[in-house]
Design a protein around this nucleic acid. Structure first.
Lengths: 367, 367
DNA sequence: ACCTTTACGAAAGGCCCTTTCGTAAGTAGG
DNA sequence: CCTACTTACGAAAGGGCCTTTCGTAAAGGT
């Protein structure tokens, strides 16, 4: 029992990424050197730790043995399955991305074709990366819509045929490890907190501005799904202005399933970026609409930061500047509003983080 | 270290409230009998555990020694400081309420008079209960408005002069134990989760319908304050209809600081309860307004249950029935909407729970 | 009065941790 | 090239906490 506790603590310290000596590690964890040695032996036996060559010439005395976490002991796969693309990231246990892949999907594809394309992309990505399927310890996938705890897409207007599909079960057939499915905006929030603009913020909201604008939240450092996985769907309230955001920008109603820039949204945003007065007015109007929904979320959660990403932010900072100007006065707190630094990789990276979180839970659980 | 772990586990098991025998306890915790005996000796030394008389005649064999948690080793004090009243609850470490007190406060009182009245109420309550001030291990107070982490009332429109006051520091002068201050709706949410209608729900929202309608949230079983303590203040958005709720009901603008039934709100609600058509229409209109804000919160958090309490719900179920009817279609999830079962005691009981939570953290921390 | 049942009390043994000491493996200087 | 110094490894001794085991005490039933 005590041993498990100390193993976990030692592993945690090692996973920082360095290559500490035995004594450094012992001091950091607060154990004696012989104990640390024993723990390391056990961890090495489980394949989680390995000894590296001592650095001679570094100083006086006998060179210390150095150890490092074997990040290559296992891998996490993160997927971003959207209407138009599938994006994959493979990362080792340290979260270092060792491979990625991206394939376009046809918006019109029904779930079977879509899933087949995803499976093919997985195969290609793993082959290119040189990671065996058996080396995957966890897989996570992000998708638009409401996802239940058991991986079913309970509500989705963006991907045709997606609603009602048990994506977790479907994907699970391709893997022997656990597969997790989560709302895309939720994962984007995790990603921005992990290695994006919201690093280490405890409470973060992420707004993915696209055809349908979704909102995800990390609360108290943990992903917040809600009882039915529907947290963040403030877009359901029409007066909160998060529905049909592309249409609001162009004035042209956008059919479900069309590309977010299909109605000329990208063109409008680009023009606004060059101070075209008409385009600027359109962006301002859009921001005014969206500010209601974002402010509602911000008032409900009172997050440290609101991260804005999604297709509509790719063209430049205009929309975000406008949102910042219009959301701020609606809020009680000095919440920061920032552009995503991960761009369209946010969801995939967030999926990797989710998979790694699940792996960590197993790695560090005591029971 | 291991001893602390086992002490905490044993204490946790004992705190269930029963009077287990040594062997029962050992089996429950998963330790051997001699170990449990040693742990109990240590806990008894700290005054947390005491032996009770064995029950002879209960069965065959030598009667087992029985132990119980000494709930009377310390006490928690919970306060509900509102514009019109202060309510107090004293509870032992098991959460059993051993004393309570309530005093009316004048709405017009400035902070010094108000605080003096609170202090007097505390003195009266403790004297009547027979609990010494030194026996208090933690004090928590609920108040309308936004409360920062260090106990300052950052925003409050209901209690005159309250805004800018550091309530935590002021109250702290009267006690030697830690004093915590929290938003009233947040505490009501905790109370309903503890021994109200939302027992053991992980994600709960509590709506306190009054002059200003506040919303509090428990997320993942933990109170959610937000970065600046302002979580739940969706009432700030005018289109969400949680401001001036009393005025909306009566048609008469309510001056800040007036009693929530001063404008006849109680009369309207009572009439609606007896199916007066005009009153029913007014309640329906109010529910329509409020449903926006409640739905926004529900969509943002996706809680398991929404508990509705506050002054406007005292007259009967009419408003809640109406809210249930109007909020439901705006939500994605089958969230339950229920009336508070704690009534106007919710905030005070929630304050007790918060104080007990803080005590528990100290009791069970390992460091 | 005696047996069965149940629980207490003390002693023996093992695991894991820490402290301590001798030894190995480097660098710096004469 | 050899010695002195520094730093870290390896093994042994010692202590805390837990478990197992055994004898004893205190009840009820026959």
């Amino acid at each position: 029992m005590l041993r498990r506790l100390n193993s976990a603590a030692t592993l945690r310290a090692l996973r920082g990424g360095g290559e500490p000596t035995l004594s450094e590690l012992a001091k950091q964890v607060g154990l004696s050197r012989p104990t640390t040695e024993g723990v390391l032996g056990e961890l090495a036996g489980r394949g989680l730790v390995t000894e590296v060559a001592p650095r001679s010439g570094a100083g006086l005395g006998r060179p210390a043995r150095r150890y490092r976490f074997r990040a290559e002991a296992g891998y996490a796969l993160g997927l971003d399955i959207d209407a138009h693309w599938v994006q994959l990231f493979v990362a080792d246990l340290n979260g270092e991305v060792v491979g990625s892949y991206r394939a376009d999907l046809d918006v019109g594809w029904a779930p079977p074709e879509r899933l087949a394309a995803v499976r093919a992309a997985v195969k290609t990505c793993l082959a290119a990366t040189g990671v065996e399927r058996s080396e995957l310890w966890a897989v996570a996938a992000g998708t638009p819509g409401v996802v239940t705890a058991d991986g079913e897409v309970a509500f989705c207007t963006v991907v045709p045929g997606w609603q009602g599909l048990n994506l977790g079960r479907e994907l699970g057939r391709s893997f022997t490890c656990p597969v997790y499915v989560e709302n895309d905006a939720n994962l984007a929030a995790m990603a921005e907190r992990w290695r994006g603009v919201a690093e280490d913020a405890d409470d973060v909201i992420c707004v993915l501005a696209g055809l349908h604008t979704g909102v995800g939240a990390v609360i108290g450092g943990r992903l917040h799904r809600g009882r039915w996985g529907a947290a963040g769907e403030v877009g359901m309230l029409p007066e909160l202005g998060l529905r049909d955001t592309t249409a609001a920008l162009t004035g042209v109603p956008t059919a479900a399933g069309r590309a977010p820039d299909g109605g000329g949204a990208a063109a409008v945003l680009a023009a606004a970026q060059h101070d075209d007065p008409e385009a600027v007015a359109l962006v301002e109007r859009l921001a005014a609409r969206m500010s209601r929904g974002i402010a509602a979320m911000a008032l409900a959660i009172d997050p440290e930061m609101i991260v804005v990403g999604g297709a509509l932010t790719r063209a430049g900072d205009r929309l975000i500047d406008e949102l910042r100007r219009q959301v701020r006065p609606l809020c009680l707190s000095p919440t920061r509003i920032e552009a995503s630094t991960l761009g369209d990789e946010a969801v995939g990276i967030g999926a990797v983080r989710l998979a790694l979180d699940r792996i960590d839970e197993n790695l560090f659980k005591l029971d």
